[in-house]
Design a protein around this nucleic acid. Structure first.
Length: 928
RNA sequence: AGGACUAUAGCUCAGUUGGUUAGAGCGCUACCUUGACAUGGUAGAGGUCCCCAGUUCGAAUCUGGGUAGUCCUACCA
């Protein structure tokens, strides 16, 4: 074995071995455990959030697989309609053409080509993380099977009246030329203006002043609204005003939606271009006048003078024209929330179009109930509030998109605009008895990507067919995902699954039992990682390392705003002057677990991964030590030979049980931070720091019996073998590599650690007596080390120690453990002072009643020791004062539970005794 | 506007149903290359647990009120 751990070679070797041997597939077992991967964008690449979530899923999967569950991790990718189409369109743009030049069929071919070309990227990256999904079952949302499921769901919902087509106001993206859902609109505050316009009253005298942030929409106004109780305007309700620039007259109406306080109290109403106005228009039966075209240029029924102008050019022109007419009253600065498309970034227009909708309200009822009654549980719990809030006020879901890449809507239109929904043109002809010569044209639109994602848990298992996989692995065990897609995905999955997947008795099936909601991975400043901020970390770069120049190049390439590149370059050079080291997959994964406390976002601190890389190295070297001492030696696997366990052996076996229990608790409660901390502490602070050191006096002592050596070797190797399995779900590669060497010596055989049983805590193996003895031993050793450290006595200098005042238990412990004590505290002699025997000047440490004396000779500075003692005394004094205050308080003694009081009393006594001894010691030194 | 979350060591974070000397990693200081490991060992310094009030024998922990920050949802034209 190398002196330092070298992850790169090990990782690729073992991954190929595991995958080629089929270890990732379900291995059978009584109970089942299954997770559906949130399908990443097929042409995307892995970011830190993926890395984090995959690491968590993989730990759960490996844990359950080792526990003997029949475990399925279903993997697959998403076609990501808009995102993927945009990428391909940009490629075309670079060639100077657009999708319309190619035509629909040829364009879709191009997207498929791109999918084939880049689709392997994300799955390759998943493999680098050590993820162990069943690749043989990999699915894609546009696969034939999944597409069938999509069609089936659409048709059934339509027939049930839960999907309908309607002309409504939608969020229109004028660049992408498609409707998008409410969720895909991001509203941010921006600086703008509030324009005040005068609308003259019909009949000549006076005017009303309206305020607007979007002047161009006035072309489509069909009313002016005032509050019904607004005395200023009460007399005008029902009158008409002249709408400037249009030659139309529109009524003044009363509606209590109007805020008396805001602006002038008069609101221009544009039902075809504003969601609130749309609702008001419906209430009052107002006409809807569309004044835009698909590009959001002026069009529709707008006055000819403005037709063809871009919406923002038209805005300027209309303000100028109104000004020229003397109708512009004033312009105020105004902050407003501007809706932009999350993909295109352009301002979204409310726009009247025909679209398909899902009646979400109907589906939401059971989905709310499932969470209310605990069938589905969010972890952490507080996300349920978010879920409820949204679900209880859910709006119908616009599912049609005017894109080419996606599942085409299974509806056919005749020339009269009548439409028929069905599986194919032939099917609808048959079903509706349509004449052969009746021309039919399929709907041009595709479905929102999230429509197919909503079916993911069951469509991947073969639904609508009643497959064995569906019966066995659905409902799934847990969904691991980010809070950002609770509405987009989680809620819709719950609605769709409850509606379509039934148990044999007809009751609805949940998509999953738990929803584990992870925090967002942010940069070390707490900023969201984004390409435009240039603070993105690529998980693969943390695994393989990257030099500074490549990192800078990567972060500044293909920027949407090239002017940011210089700033990003500077920040990157400052933060990573040496580039990024190669830390390996195991270190990265362990970092994710250690940071995965629930309910908060994660600031990714590069220092943590460095620490866990060191942990890998520690593990590596611990294993090296064990192998050096055990390979080719008798490791006690032959039960017929005498085998003697030392105190340390018994102790570490007990500690292993404790660690196993704690890790299981962490894993079961999704507390990966606690589980990872427990195993870290066990391995480093118990096994390496103490146990390996305690094994040396036995193994290296010529005089130790063969039985004792056998016992220690057996414990060394068995405990190591066990904690490798314990650690495997978190650090798959290093554990496999070491386990292959260690397992045979521990009497284990098997092709891979992956399929070994997970260690289960055996409370019987905990040894409280051994524990107490080791704690005593540690106390004595630490006491002496403390003197050594604070007195600056070189670690290499062997010391003589005198012991005084201990009881019989101390004597027994000393007697049994002298060799350990000598080795670990580097002592050449231990002398127990007889009663009345004079002690030389010495530094002191206390373990209970036992006094440990390190004679000063020329080693210890008298003043330094006095200072050390007085520091200790000061600490005790403070503590004693606190304890005394408590115990003298009658209400404490009276009201606190007896055991608490007793504990405080004991503490008090111990501290008093210690105080007394330290004071005596001070006196002795002073008297010298 | 409504809601959620967060505030603990220089930094990143733990802290179970109230009872600890308030912990870990990184960083820092001193000493040390001793036969697994300097990606290491030993020892150490470092905290008004955001503030105020309350409940309680006892509060980092529970309650109320502030302050600061993050996020979500809905929005006034």
């Amino acid at each position: 074995m190398d002196k330092t751990f070298q992850p790169a070679e090990i990782e690729t070797r073992w991954y190929q071995e595991w995958e080629s041997k089929g270890y990732f597939a379900p291995q059978g077992g009584e109970s089942t455990y299954s997770i559906m991967i949130p399908p990443p964008n097929v042409t995307g690449s892995l970011h830190m959030g993926h890395g984090f979530q995959q690491s968590i899923m993989d730990a759960l999967i490996r844990y359950h697989r080792m526990r003997g569950d029949d475990t399925l991790w279903q993997v697959g990718t998403d076609h990501a309609g808009i995102a993927t189409q945009m990428v391909v369109e940009r490629q075309l743009e670079a060639q100077g053409i657009n999708r319309h030049d190619l035509g629909r069929d040829r364009f879709i071919e191009r997207v498929w080509e791109w999918k084939e070309e880049s689709g392997g990227n994300i799955t390759r990256q998943l493999r680098r993380l050590g993820a162990s999904p069943d690749w043989s079952r990999e699915r894609f949302t546009m696969d034939e099977g999944l597409s069938n499921a999509v069609q089936e769901v659409f048709i059934r919902l339509y027939k049930e009246g839960l999907i309908y087509r309607g002309k409504r106001l939608v969020n229109w993206d004028p660049v992408l030329h498609t409707a998008i859902s409410d969720l895909e609109v991001i509203s941010e505050e921006e600086n703008g203006y509030l324009w005040h316009f005068r609308y003259p009253l019909a009949g000549g005298e006076g005017h009303l002043t309206v305020a607007t942030t979007r002047p161009e929409t006035m072309l489509g106004d069909t009313a002016v609204a005032v509050h019904p109780e607004d005395e200023r305007y009460a007399h005008l309700i029902g009158r008409m005003v002249e709408l400037p620039l249009t030659g139309r007259q529109i009524p003044v109406i009363a509606d209590d939606y109007v805020d008396l306080e805001f602006g002038t109290g008069c609101v221009k109403i544009t039902p075809a271009h504003d969601f609130n106005d749309y609702e008001m228009g419906k209430r009052h039966g107002l006409p809807m006048i569309n004044i835009l075209d698909d590009d959001a240029a002026i069009g529709g029924e707008a006055p000819q003078a403005y037709v063809g102008m871009d919406r923002f050019a038209a805005r300027k022109q209309i303000v100028a024209d109104l000004d020229a007419l003397g109708l512009l009253e004033k312009i105020d600065d105004h902050k407003l929330k501007v809706p932009r498309g999350d993909r295109s970034g352009v301002v979204i227009e409310p726009y009247l179009t025909d679209q398909w909708y899902v009646d979400a309200r109907a589906l939401a009822g059971p989905a709310i109930a499932a969470v209310e009654n605990g069938d589905i549980r969010f972890v952490p719990r507080q996300w349920e509030n978010t879920y409820f809030a949204w679900m209880r006020d859910i709006q119908d879901w616009c599912i049609s998109r005017q894109l080419w890449w996606g599942h085409r809507i299974p509806a056919w239109y005749d020339d009269d605009g009548k439409f028929y929904v069905g599986a194919s043109e032939a099917a609808v002809r048959e079903e509706h008895g349509l004449a052969e010569d009746l021309a039919l044209r399929q709907d041009q639109d595709v479905l929102d990507t999230w429509f197919s994602s909503a079916l993911w848990t069951f469509s991947t298992l073969g639904w609508p067919d009643a497959t064995p996989e569906l019966a066995r692995f659905h409902p799934t065990s847990v969904l691991v995902t980010g809070f950002d897609i609770i509405f987009f995905w989680v809620a819709r999955m719950i609605m769709m699954t409850l509606h379509f997947v039934k148990n044999e008795d007809g009751t609805a099936q949940m998509p999953f039992r738990d929803v584990y909601v992870t925090g967002l991975i942010r940069d070390e400043q707490g900023q969201k990682m984004s390409k435009s901020k240039g603070n993105v970390l690529d998980p693969i770069d943390l695994i393989d390392g990257i030099d500074l120049e490549s990192l800078v190049a990567k972060r500044t390439a293909g920027m949407m705003q090239p002017q940011l590149a210089a700033k990003i370059e500077k920040a990157t050079r400052k933060q990573f002057p040496e580039g990024i080291n190669a830390y390996g997959t195991d270190a990265l994964r362990f970092t994710f677990y250690s940071l995965a406390s629930t309910g908060r976002d994660i600031k990714f601190d590069i220092g943590r991964i460095e620490g866990y890389r060191n942990f890998c190295n520690k593990i590596w070297n611990a294993a090296r030590y064990v192998m050096m001492n055990c390979e080719g030696e008798d490791c006690g696997q032959d039960e017929s030979l005498p085998c003697e366990l030392s105190l340390a052996d018994r102790w570490i076996i007990g500690k292993l049980q404790e660690a196993e229990a704690e890790i299981a608790r962490g894993m079961e409660s999704y507390r990966f931070d606690l589980a990872s901390q427990a195993i870290y502490e066990f391995i480093w602070n118990e096994y390496c720091d103490w146990y390996l050191e305690l094994s040396k006096p036995v193994l290296w002592d010529e005089g130790a019996s063969e039985a004792a050596k056998r016992g220690t070797r057996r414990t060394l190797i068995r405990v190591l073998e066990a904690w490798l399995r314990l650690l495997h779900p978190m650090m798959p590669f290093i554990t496999e590599e070491i386990w292959q060497n260690v397992a045979p010596l521990a009497g284990k055989n098997g092709a891979t650690i992956m399929l070994q049983p997970y260690p289960v805590s055996a409370p019987d193996a905990m040894d409280t007596a051994a524990n107490a003895d080791i704690e005593w031993l540690k106390g004595v050793i630490v006491g002496i080390r403390n003197i050594r450290g604070e007195m600056n006595i070189p670690p290499g200098k062997a010391l003589t120690t005198l012991l005084r005042n201990g009881g019989e238990e101390d004597k027994r412990r000393l007697h049994e453990n002298a060799p350990f004590l000598k080795k670990l505290a580097k002592l050449e002699e231990i002398h127990w002072l007889a009663d009345g025997e004079e002690a030389p000047a010495a530094a002191t440490a206390l373990v209970g009643e036992l006094e440990i004396l390190v004679p000063m000779a020329d080693l210890i500075d008298r003043e330094a020791e006095l200072a050390r003692l007085s520091k200790e005394i000061a600490r005790l004094e403070k503590d004693l004062a606190r304890l005394a205050g408590k115990l003298n308080n009658e209400s404490f003694v009276g009201k606190a539970p007896a055991d608490v009081v007793a504990k405080e009393r004991e503490k008090m006594q111990a501290q008093e005794l210690a105080m007394q001894k330290l004071q005596e010691q001070v006196k002795r030194i002073q008297d010298m």
